[in-house]
Design a protein around this nucleic acid. Sequence first.
DNA 1: ATACTATTTGAGTGTCCACTCTAATTTGAG
DNA 2: CTCAAATTAGAGTGGACACTCAAATAGTAT
Lengths: 184, 184
Amino acid sequence: MRYKAGLETRDRILEATRNQISENGLEGTTIKTICESAGVLPGSFYNLFDSKEQAILTAVRTAIDAVDPDPAHEGKDTLEDLINAYIRFVEEQGDLARVYIRIAVAAGQNSPELTGRVLRHHQGRVKRFTEALLREKPELDADVAEFRAEALVSALNGVTLHRSIDASFEVSQYARLLLGVATQ
Amino acid sequence: MRYKAGLETRDRILEATRNQISENGLEGTTIKTICESAGVLPGSFYNLFDSKEQAILTAVRTAIDAVDPDPAHEGKDTLEDLINAYIRFVEEQGDLARVYIRIAVAAGQNSPELTGRVLRHHQGRVKRFTEALLREKPELDADVAEFRAEALVSALNGVTLHRSIDASFEVSQYARLLLGVATQ
DNA sequence: ATACTATTTGAGTGTCCACTCTAATTTGAG
DNA sequence: CTCAAATTAGAGTGGACACTCAAATAGTAT
C-alpha cells in the first residue's frame, strides 16, 4: 500500500466498519455490508486488510481512543473535566460509545487480543481519574483514591451500557450524580 | 409435548442453551453446539422449539429472573438487602450474570422482544430499589429517590460488566461503595 | 512513453448456519 | 395389548458467510 488511492480506500473501509458496527452490531457486520458501505469490492478489502478481525480491531481502536478526553490536558484535568469529557463523548458519539461497550462485552470471551486492549485502556482511564481525584483531595490514601476511581469508571460504563439499550436515557445527570462516588 | 421424555429433553436443551451463551456468547451459540451439549439431534430440537430465538428467549428468562432477590421479601427489604442479593447473584452465578449483561447489550439493536424484556426488568429493579430507599429516607422526594435508584442500578450493571471482562474484579467492595450514590 | 506495481474487479470456493423432512422408535391411554 | 400420537434420528437444503484468485486497470517513478 503505497499509493494515495489505497490509503483513501483504507480510510473509507475503516469508517464503513465503524458505521456498520454501531448500526448492526459486531455480529451484523459482514464483509459484504462493509464493502457496500465503503463502495468497494471484497477483493479490495482483502488487498488492504488480512482479515475481517484485523479491520475491526483497527477500526475499534479509534472508538476506544475517542473515549479519552484530549490527552494534551493529561496531568492537569479535574475530575469534573474528565466526567464532562466522558458525557460529551457519550452524547455526541453515541454510536461509538455503543461500539466500545459492545466490544468490551464481546471481548470478555472471544478475543484475548481485544480483552487486553480494553483492559489496558480501562486501567489508563482509572489512572487518570485517580490522579485527578488525588489532586482534588490530597489527603486521600493512594489506594483509596484508586479504588474510588475504579468504581466511578465502572459505574460510568454502566450508565453508558444503559444508554446503549435506551437511547432516551439522560447520561449527563446520572454521570454527575456518580461523581459523588469518588468525592463523597 | 405431553410425554415425560419430551419435558426432560426440553429442560436439557434449555440448560445447554444457557451454558452455551455464557461460555461462547450469543453469537457463538449454534443449534449444533446446543444439541451436542444437550445430547440431542436437531430434529429433536425443532420438535420442541419453533426457532433458535425462541429457545434463547426462554432460556434467558431464567437468567434475568435470577438477578432479583427472593420476591417473597418484596416490600420489606432494605437497600442493603438488595445490594447483598445482587452481590450474591453476581458472585455465585457469574455465568448467568454474564448472560444478563450480554443479552442486555446485544438486545439494544438485535431484538425488540429482548430489549423490551430487559428494559421492563430494569424498571422493576429500579422500582424496588426506589421503594427501599424511600423506606430508609422518607424525607426524599419520590422523583429524587427514583433518580438515585436508577443511577445505582445502572452503576451496579457497570460493575457487573467489568467483572464479565475481568473475572478477578471484586464486585462486593465496589457495589457497597456505590450504595453511597443513593444514600449520600 | 515505458515499465513496473499498486489497486480494483467480480466471479468463485468451501464451510457453517438455521432449519426441514421422512422414517424409525418410544410412549402411555384405553 | 393395541395403536395413535409424541418423540427422536439423521441426512439433507438453501443461503450467507469469510475469504481467494486471475485478470483488468490505474498510478507513478524514471
